[in-house]
Amino acid sequence: MAVDARTATRRDTAQAGAPRRRRRIQWVGYLYILPALAVLTVFLLVPLGQCVQISLYHWDGLSPATWAGVANYVDLARDPVLRSGFGHTLVLVVGFAVLPILFALTLVAVMGRAVKLRGLSVYRVVLFLPQVIASVVVATSWVAIYAPDGVLNGFLALIGLKMVTRPWLGDFGTALPAVGLIGTWVEIGLCLVLFLAGVAQIPRELYEAARLDGAGIVREFFAVTLPGLRGQIAVALTLTVIAAFKTFDLVYVTTHGGPGTSTVVPAYLIYDRAFNLSQVGSACAVGVVLTAVILVITLVINRVSGGGE
């Protein structure tokens, strides 16, 4: 108990205490990061560099490559399918990132004050469930939900909306939002668990102080919970936006990019070009552009959210 109390008061001075350490260089630090950095370099960073290199060549994966310069990139800029692929990703970002974070914040706002609710842990387990189910399984079950004679159309017919029923994944207008909503269903759990872990780290005294001030559920959320969750929101936003850009499994299983090219996404184009169409150079060019876009977005998110650190 005594240790706990000391811990609580030391929390704020921890940052200030750091500079007191000795200034000499701690070479052992390199030793600790060496294994992780080695694995990262060999299996991720070097292939990433090779991806840039290959993107400058015409290569079918078998015969010798021929120099292409920026031809693959010029092709991409002209290729309407690829351009629409990146456009589709923006729709998926709404489904994968924006909606889940808003939903999860709403839930945390409700649950933040509800620490004494019975059965809360059961709800947590259930809400996080979609995240632990293999995405291929998720896709399989949503194929059934969206099917022409599936559960969604059955429900719509039941409540007298038979005129809006359609094959949701086979319709040019609805296939992409339908895939995005699967993402919403999947990512809510991740956001929620991150935010709940964050709320648990917010000093209880802050909530008690807010309550003594007579703060309601809304004011408490904006004054205590939201500022306290800034780091977790940044993590959640980063992870879910990247998930949206990386989307492959869901599209592969549910639509294969169709109907037409209405659900084609960059990741699907990369796989398709490299392993089905033998345009390895072009696939790598898409990979480079996709990576660059993801890096820029991530840096912007962290710059905006991490201003105080």
Binding site: I33, L40, C284, T291
Partner: peptide, 30 residues
């Protein structure tokens, strides 16, 4: 620990958090 290049090396590690598998899986396969 304090050592020169700590910030840069951490940033390099974070690159791994952001890079999509699609970008390195093709060269890695070969």
């Amino acid at each position: 620990f304090r050592f020169p290049g700590r910030g840069v090396l951490f940033a390099v590690t974070l690159v791994g958090l952001m890079v999509p598998a699609e970008a390195f899986v093709i060269p890695l396969y070969f």
